[in-house]
Design a protein around this nucleic acid. Structure first.
Lengths: 368, 368
DNA sequence: CCTAGGATTGAGACCGGACTCACATCGATG
DNA sequence: CATCGATGTGAGTCCGGTCTCAATCCTAGG
């Protein structure tokens, strides 16, 4: 339409300088407003820039300032509203401080994560926020540290790395939730998680995810404190797609020594578990009690509304971004925030249904 | 720990060249493997690079190749699972093709969108995928076009811009859904959307969102085809936060001429609408029929399961990324894909409850 | 033994800004 | 009127790669 059209090369400071009849240096100063520039020159340069619709090349700028004003965010799965919300917290905060976010999804795959971190580092992000898929293999994260760029963890920790971490005290809330289930009389409590492992779960096994490890640890504590032994056969990992979650659910809810309560490790799992329960013709909480991690709005709409463990996910995202920005700007780290998850009792947990096993019954009676 | 520690400057080709005792040019060639390099040199350079743990600076590379291998994605709200899924489709596809994604949230705010596009352009993204907040003000989008970089729309169109668009035929599915409601006897059908407008809705008004405009148009068509007049007083826009959605819901469901069916424009709205309905003590579908856009997994868990309009969101994301990459690589655009939404009848739509108005009754009878 | 042509190689330009440095200019001071 | 510090200003370097171009090596053909 108007004049210029869509020619290739973009307008550079040099072009603006020429148009304004000043040196490149002066034009750069006027545009970046730094250094000393006379009023006359400034006006001419700004006018020329306007006329040529000049836009600075951020790449070139980053090139010699060393700052890209970009932060990298590496999460397991944005599709999961948990990360969606956290990401929202991060981007909101980053934007306010003038930073952009490059988002990378890893599908909780370690190789993908290693790759993502490397690429982000190569792109010269100013800092990284990572939800580490593995707390064991941390070589790539140490690389971040070695590159001198700040790093913040969200949701989970990794190894013994000394990194700011925004996460809730999982063991604590898990213990609390388990106590709640124990008080309701449940003894066979299943825990279902997507966490990929090679072996089946058994005590002492090293889990890749600190978060899941903590949850299980919390459960075990609760059992031990109640003088009961932890039913580790009901810890079900590797719950991948909807189908496998369904079959795992059926598995734990059938047989002679079936679970009477199920804990779903995240919202995605919860959906399939609840569906499977409904398909089995069981009702919540009369036949099976149900509890899940993360408080999504829809959990209030089911019948009954679901009892959940609410985490301040958005705020954790905000805090992660703030902590990172602090570090990037060389400020002293703020006091490490502690996030507390809360158990929201809504209605999917009920007393254990009286069944055929008299021995367990006695135990329950003793406790209540 | 090991040797190097955390010194400032990173290793550059020059450093590698020096270590390998070759010229910068040779080192660069060996590393980027282009040009001719003798086997001897190649080995030495690679070894040196390895030893110094050299990593290329993508910024510098982008600088003179002109390609940043980054695409910008501008959406209204990642927190909304609709965009979460679409984003997932985009990032999955982008990653496969070697591109990274810079994600920007606009909160459906035009100013924020303009800003986002500008920043992304300045960062030299190779292309942009945008869900335009406004189909009216498109200056900033024309700017993208002027910059010579490819642009693809997702979800909505904008003005008369000639841009690849990945979206479903909203008017069609809206008409179909409305017919379904009409056949169930409903005449007073409310439509609730977050779309911000200055004025109240009335026929002929220009809406910022092509998508919402199409949905309303589809409803109108269905009414007209059935020989009925469209109850435009039940088109409720500006449904912002949960509270306002609740009060709007109460408003349309009360009074002498209340709605007997409600259509929620997205998942977030749906949550509040359903809650409000429950709070009013009304039941779905006996008292009120309910229908919503987007098929989220949780819609199957409510009682009754919700009738929804399913959109192939993930695939639209994939297609958008593919189309963009095609353009970025100079390939001819593929045949424009058409995405079809489907009405998933689940159980939240029922026959209109017989009420005090005999005249409307007659009409319903005539139609069935 | 000499030479043409392909394989190698190094110097240096360049991408587009930021920034250093030496050199004016200019009003204020003594 | 000479001097000094505070601007203004332009030339040129640098960031870390890519890429051009001319020079140098080598080897097979004459």
């Amino acid at each position: 339409m108007n004049g210029d059209g869509a020619r290739r090369r973009d307008v550079t400071v040099a072009d603006v300088a020429k148009a304004a009849q000043v040196s490149k240096a002066q034009a750069a100063r006027a545009l970046g407003n730094y250094g000393a520039v006379s009023e006359d020159v400034r006006e001419r340069v700004l006018a020329a820039a306007e006329a040529l619709s000049y836009r600075p090349n951020e790449l070139a700028r980053s090139m010699n300032t060393g700052k890209s004003h970009t932060i990298g965010v590496v999460v397991g799965d944005i599709e999961n509203p948990h990360f969606g919300l956290a990401t929202r917290g991060i981007t909101d905060t980053a934007k306010k401080a003038g930073y952009n976010v490059i988002l990378v999804n890893t599908d909780e795959d370690r190789a993908a994560e290693v790759d993502a971190v490397r690429v982000l580092l190569d792109k010269r992000v100013d800092g990284l926020i990572v939800a580490p898929a593995s707390s064991v293999d941390t070589e790539h994260l140490q690389e971040v540290h070695r590159s001198g760029r700040p790093l913040v963890f969200i949701d989970r920790t990794a190894g013994d790395l000394q990194v700011d971490t925004m996460a809730v005290d999982m063991a604590r809330i898990s213990r609390e939730a388990t106590q709640y289930l124990l008080e309701a009389g449940h003894r066979r409590i299943a825990f279902i998680s997507t966490l990929r492992t090679d072996a089946h779960y058994s005590t002492g096994i090293t889990l890749e995810s600190s978060q899941i490890a903590d949850r299980i640890e919390g459960m075990r504590q609760a059992f031990l404190e109640a003088g009961l032994s932890f039913p580790e056969d009901l810890v079900k990992l590797n719950a991948g797609d909807a189908d496998s979650i369904r079959s795992i659910t059926r598995e734990v809810l059938r047989g002679p020594d079936q679970a009477t309560a199920v804990v779903a490790s995240d919202g995605l799992i919860a959906l399939s578990v609840v569906e499977a329960i409904q398909e089995l013709g069981l009702s919540i909480p009369a036949d099976v009690s149900f509890l899940m991690y993360d408080d999504f709005a829809w959990t209030r709409l089911t019948t009954p509304p679901l009892t959940v463990i609410a985490q301040p996910v958005y705020n954790m995202g905000v805090a992660a971004a703030k902590a990172l920005i602090r570090q990037m700007e060389g400020l002293p780290p703020a006091a490490p925030a502690q996030f507390t998850a809360t158990l929201v009792r809504r209605g999917s947990v009920g007393p254990r249904r009286i069944e055929e096993d008299p021995q367990q019954e006695e135990l329950a009676a003793t406790l209540s």
